[in-house]
């Protein structure tokens, strides 16, 4: 299967003063054309590191130990910086959390969209402005001609995120990476923004990689979900299978900790323990220390991929 984006056995460490942090190990994922893939996990599980590695904006201290990232036909890790910069913004776009600080505070938002268009789109300078206003209109910003002249501080957080999306989609990319796009927005705005992302990706057959810690949100908007824990992808499945029949103990506990409209505060359970320190020697299964189902086989390397059903993979010796 050749997807829009294919990540093969990606391993990445951060070289720090206090030792190497093994942030990603053997991560494999793929996204089909037009698909929305959610990557969920608690803070520090490596979701954002994965996203930044895909777009090639990882921290200077990060070092890729092995694996491949194939985007379209391009090997992102082997490609030159020039080739990657050419893809960024045009075929591969990204939006971030805290949209207000993600926009240049002293540049009109319309001009910021134009910057992207001028770089990638084959648009004459006379047409730039019309295209930028169109991009604003596409993300349903009311009165886009006026908003073109607005500075980020004159807009609400939700409006800023729409501008970010307008920027990201200005060149109709094949893949959108959304890194916690609705964190810090109120629930109503969150729904509006997520609906917008879903509609736009459906209508343009654009793939979306949604990074979130909110399993409920991912369940509502994604086609498939990958669950990450301590730098491992522990389970990948379609939304229905993952939510109804989680196979990895961590996924199950994550579901138990996710509030739903039906759940009460007593009904929620916390996941015991915390993420292991990624600088130390780690067991084959990085969840084993927190796991009630641990058996002797959990120490054996390599950690297997177990196929539970079609399109349902889990990395566990004793899946549920």
């Amino acid at each position: 299967m050749t997807g829009q984006l294919q990540i093969d056995r990606l391993s990445l460490v951060f070289r720090t003063r206090h030792g190497a942090v093994r942030a990603l190990e053997d991560v494999s994922l793929s996204i089909e054309r037009g698909e929305i893939l959610g990557v969920v996990g608690e803070s520090g599980s490596g979701k954002s590191v994965l996203a930044y590695a895909v777009i090639g904006l990882q921290d200077p201290a990060a070092e890729v130990l092995g694996g491949r990232i194939l985007f379209g036909g391009l090997d992102m890790l082997a490609a030159s910086e020039q080739a990657r910069a050419d893809v960024r913004g045009r075929e591969l776009a990204m939006i971030f959390q805290s949209p207000r600080t993600a926009l240049n505070p002293i540049r009109k938002v319309g001009r910021q969209i134009e910057d992207i268009l001028r770089q990638h789109a084959n648009v004459s300078s006379g047409e730039l402005r019309r295209h930028a206003i169109n991009a604003l209109a596409r993300v349903r910003i009311p009165d886009p001609e006026r908003r073109y002249h607005a500075y980020p501080f004159e807009l609400s957080g939700g409006m800023c995120q729409r501008v970010m999306i307008a920027m990201a989609l200005a060149c109709s990319p094949f893949l959108l990476i959304a890194d916690e796009p609705t964190t810090g927005l109120d629930v109503t705005t969150q729904a509006v923004i997520m609906d917008l992302i879903r509609d736009l990706s459906r209508s343009a057959r654009m793939s979306t990689l949604l990074i979130t810690h909110d399993l409920g949100l991912a369940g509502e908007y994604c086609d498939r979900i990958a669950v990450m824990h301590a730098g491992h992808v522990v389970e990948v499945a379609s939304v229905e299978k993952l939510l109804d029949h989680p196979a990895h103990p961590y996924t199950q506990q994550l579901l138990g900790a996710t509030p739903t409209p039906q759940s009460t505060i007593e009904g929620l359970t916390a996941i015991p323990g915390q993420l292991p320190d990624l600088r130390h020697d780690l067991p084959a299964c990085r969840f084993s220390a927190r796991c009630a189902r641990r058996v002797a086989a959990c120490e054996e390397r390599p950690l297997p991929w177990v196929s539970i059903g079609p399109d349902h993979l889990v990395r566990c010796q004793v899946p549920l």
């Binding site: 777009i55 904006l57 910069a85 050419d86 893809v87 960024r88 913004g89 045009r90 776009a93 990204m94 971030f96 805290s98 600080t101 993600a102 926009l103 240049n104 505070p105 540049r107 910057d115 992207i116 770089q119 990638h120 970010m164 920027m167 990201a168």
Partner: peptide, 22 residues
Amino acid sequence: GSDFTRTARAGGLPRSKILVTY
């Protein structure tokens, strides 16, 4: 090191543009 410079890089803007305009 700011977020908006990261956005500019994610948008594939050239280095000179990021350095001066942003």
